[in-house]
Amino acid sequence: MTQQSVGTAGVKNNVNESVSGSWKRARRNGLGALYRKEMADHIKGRRFLIILLLVAVTTAAGIYGAATGMKDALEADSHFVFLKLYTTGGSSVPSYVSFMALIGPFVGLMLGFDAINSERSNGTLGRLLAQPIYRDNVIIGKFLAGTVLIAILTTASSILTGAAGFLTTGLLPSGEELARVFVYIICTILYICFWLSVAIMFSVFCRHAATSALASIALWVIFAVFVSLLAGFFAGVIYPVETDYQKAVNALANYNCQLYINRMSPYYLYTEAVSSILNPAIRSVNAVTVSQLVGAISGYLPFTQSLMLVWPHLFGLASLTMLAFLISYVKFMRQEIR
């Protein structure tokens, strides 16, 4: 009797599988339901209001910065005006891009810092995993919902900034400018997703939400502030530039060493990438000697060349995101449910 009913259920499943697409399969394994629930949780939660406020203030400040600094920037160089909306800051207000680089991580952290440990402390994890779903779908669903929200927020904020500039200046963006802004948005999404996966990673390792929040903020401070200090220090130790002779011999090596250490920080990686993609005048992200510049014609890099320049950065950010997610994934799959 029982055997028979199991048999018919199996046949029904097979029919379903052949008829329906991947969405239905996702629903059966619970990924769809988990994603929906996470999304609803985020959007209905009070925390989301804080995130919205944060993004709104960032956008407003960015627009204000561009409005105040635009005149001077245009006098210096009147090409790619649309992009200057993003990169120009006023005398006291930083640009939209640097605002995002600082505030963006918080959005990721807030969306992820209690992803797993709140399930634990609420006592919902055991109940959740006793349902017929794959365990990895729990963490994938959380990451997916966070990523989609980040994508929506980032895109909305960037478009808003562009629209504000569009309204005030009346300038139409060119196709190349739009393409550059598009790559910028992708970079920003990747960057914030990195922080989301870092936050989720800490939420898997730490039992308390407060601990994981503090740990991820600490990591953010380290990357944003201390890595550049350490880079200078280590470069000075390895390639000292105290005396004139040392300066002559080690200057380039010292600079490169500093650069490479800095690039371990996703913060630096991101800022370098977006400033290169949004500023076609930047021709290289590495040190260029005077001899290399001899005979070079001053001009702007085409979009594809700029993209080539930041390709490794994009790749690096993506790998860091994957790495953090992979660690949390493996740890979560092997963890005891208690």
Partner: peptide
């Protein structure tokens, strides 16, 4: 489970609905 928990920001009904969806 011992100390069974539910998502505190969802109503009882919503919690059950989520379980129903997870079970397809």
């Amino acid at each position: 489970p011992d100390n069974v928990g539910f998502y505190p920001d969802m109503t009882g009904r919503e919690n059950l609905r989520f379980t129903g969806r997870l079970n397809g």
